[in-house]
Simulated assay, not measured.
Amino acid sequence: MDYDLAIEGTPGTISGGTGVLLIHPSTGETDRIDTEFLNVDTDHRLVVSTRTTAREVQQKLEYYGVDTENTVILDTLSVERGYSRRSSDRVHYVAAPDDLDGIVAQVREFLETHEGKLRVSLDSITEMAYYADEERARVAVEEILDLLSEHDAVGLFHIAEEVHEPEVLEGYHELFDGVIVLDEDGTVTTDF
């Protein structure tokens, strides 16, 4: 199954099972690229947020016109921060951003319980590594990439460039089929 891409400089389509790495400055504005990825040619989408709460993700999606009816949000922050939370069909929670097994389990459940064209956005690998560690984050990313392949889904994974050692970034670069680099000035370069 092929999926359309509407991000400048990328191929018109990518095949199911493709993971795309979004390398960005830590202060970079990634919302536009994230929502361009999520907003086309999709039946259901999952947004895994280790950086913002479900409410903030919802506001971003609404602002950029992403169909929230067919979007599930996994919030990894609210429980740990003590915010009020109510799980629903479209919002799920794990105990903390370092609960990487819980994150992988939620991605698996989403992919197993939804049909059609499925997209996953994970924002971000950097936060997973911050709360857990680099090695555990890498294992979780590899597990999610395997799940995407198994379910013919596609994913966009955010990583902040200057936070990680060059060899860590290079390792992720090699792991992904497509790489999008967002510069400080908003310039986008790609490698697919």
Rank of each mutant, 00 (worst) to 15 (best):
A96T: 04
Y64P: 00
V72C: 03
N39S: 10
E161A: 13
D2S: 05
R108N: 13
H173W: 14
Y130Q: 11
V181T: 06
S121F: 03
V20F: 06
I7R: 12
D67F: 08
H158M: 13
I103G: 03
T13Y: 15
I33T: 04
E36N: 09
F192A: 06
V40S: 10
I33Y: 01
D99G: 00
R90A: 14
S88C: 12
E115L: 13
R108G: 01
I23M: 12
G19C: 11
G186A: 11
S49D: 11
H151D: 07
D2P: 00
A54E: 14
V139G: 03
H92S: 09
E174C: 14
L46H: 01
V179N: 05
P166K: 04
D99A: 07
A105C: 03
T187M: 01
E135V: 12
D123F: 04
D2E: 10
A105Q: 09
I125L: 15
H164D: 09
D133W: 03
V163G: 00
Y3G: 01
V72D: 00
E167K: 02
P11Y: 08
I180E: 01
S78C: 10
L5V: 14
I33A: 01
T190D: 09
M1G: 04
G12D: 12
T71G: 03
S26Y: 02
P11W: 03
T76D: 06
F110Q: 02
V141R: 03
V91F: 01
L21K: 07
G155T: 04
Q106G: 01
L182F: 05
I23H: 06
D4T: 06
S149V: 08
R85D: 09
I33H: 00
G186V: 09
T18R: 06
H164Y: 15
H164S: 14
R32N: 08
T190V: 10
G102F: 06
E161H: 14
R90Q: 15
E134Y: 11
L5C: 07
D89N: 14
R32C: 02
D101Y: 10
G65W: 10
I103F: 00
G178H: 12
I14T: 14
I180S: 09
E127M: 08
A132V: 02
E109H: 01
I73Q: 00
G9Y: 13
V188K: 07
L5P: 05
A137Q: 07
I23C: 12
H158V: 13
E162I: 13
A96R: 13
S26I: 08
R32E: 12
I125H: 11
R136T: 10
V72W: 04
E80C: 02
S149P: 03
E56S: 08
R136P: 05
Y130A: 06
V139D: 12
V72M: 08
H24P: 04
S87T: 12
Q106T: 05
A6D: 08
Q106F: 02
V188T: 10
D43M: 08
D2G: 00
D177G: 15
E56W: 01
E184R: 08
L38W: 04
V188G: 05
S87G: 09
L111R: 12
G19S: 13
R32I: 07
G82C: 03
H24G: 05
H114E: 11
A160F: 14
T52P: 00
